[in-house]
Write a protein that binds this DNA or RNA. Structure first.
Lengths: 145, 145
DNA sequence: GTTAATATCGATAATCGTTCTCATTTCAAG
DNA sequence: CTTGAAATGAGAACGATTATCGATATTAAC
């Protein structure tokens, strides 16, 4: 069983649990995101997926997000989507403040652990239950420097 | 000179440098944000500012952001605005993924330093020049738990 | 102070990413 | 096959944000 089959099997399971079907349109959408190392906008996904209709793209993005397959985060301009972290690996984003380009990167597990410890401490003192975090590095990419 | 006067003097300077005036509407907007410990949406600011017209609120939010007085932050639902960090202090956000509420919190300086060190290392290997970071904790607030 | 030049205000229209509607098509089960 | 439920796709609707433009206020020069 290839790693792609493994991914699709996991996605199919999550959709089934959510009472949804794993149609070819949704499979194509997952393939697009699995082939990229950065979060994509709905327009980029529609383009990459042979210009699928926006209504279908948006609906399936919502379904897949609801089922825990995708993760949505809001940029300055558009929303972007990526595979949920437990389907890939925990990572962070390098955001170019000039052109808006986003790349992925990872931190050593020791750094991750110390961040989560610090957040737990701060969160409980504010009455929040911390479940995750979002750490973006802001700067300039090679093109915009 | 009170701390509020100091803030207003700094804001006036930045607007002047940007070729803009510090009008009473803009002063009122800064006062609203200075009196709050969390980023506010345009609607909240308009409400707090005696229901100022949305068009004026949005235009002044854009002007003040352009001048480096405010920082725009995209929450789960709407955009939110807060005073720029160099006018207050470096801090992070607790974001409730259910209701979208956002609170501020700070980390010990040791934790901040180790985060920046880790980001510098990761950034240079991707060709990015790192200038800052954005760390948000995601979870549930006291109401939504 | 007056005045002219210029920037801001505020009501409204326009924009645009996103969501909703609904008739048509696809899918899975019997 | 049939049949019923779910998904699709074209287009309308929505809503936060932005642009427009005449009225108003502020600044600077006299």
């Amino acid at each position: 069983m290839s790693v792609e089959d493994d991914l699709h099997a996991t996605v199919a399971g999550r959709l089934r649990r959510a009472g949804q079907r794993y149609t070819s349109a949704r499979r194509a959408l997952v393939d697009v995101l699995a082939a990229t190392r950065r979060p994509l906008t709905a327009g980029e996904i529609s383009d990459a997926d042979r210009l699928a209709p926006m209504s279908t793209t948006y609906r399936n993005l919502a379904v897949l997000t609801q089922a825990g397959v995708l993760h949505r985060f809001n940029g300055v301009d558009f929303s972007r989507f990526e595979l949920a972290e437990d389907l890939t690996e925990h990572h962070h984003h390098l955001v170019c403040v000039t052109c808006g380009h986003v790349d992925d990167f990872t931190l050593p597990t020791a750094a991750e652990a110390s961040i989560m410890r610090a957040l737990q401490t701060a969160g409980t003192s504010c009455g929040f239950t911390i479940e995750g975090h979002r750490l973006d590095a802001l700067g300039h990419c090679a093109n915009c420097r």
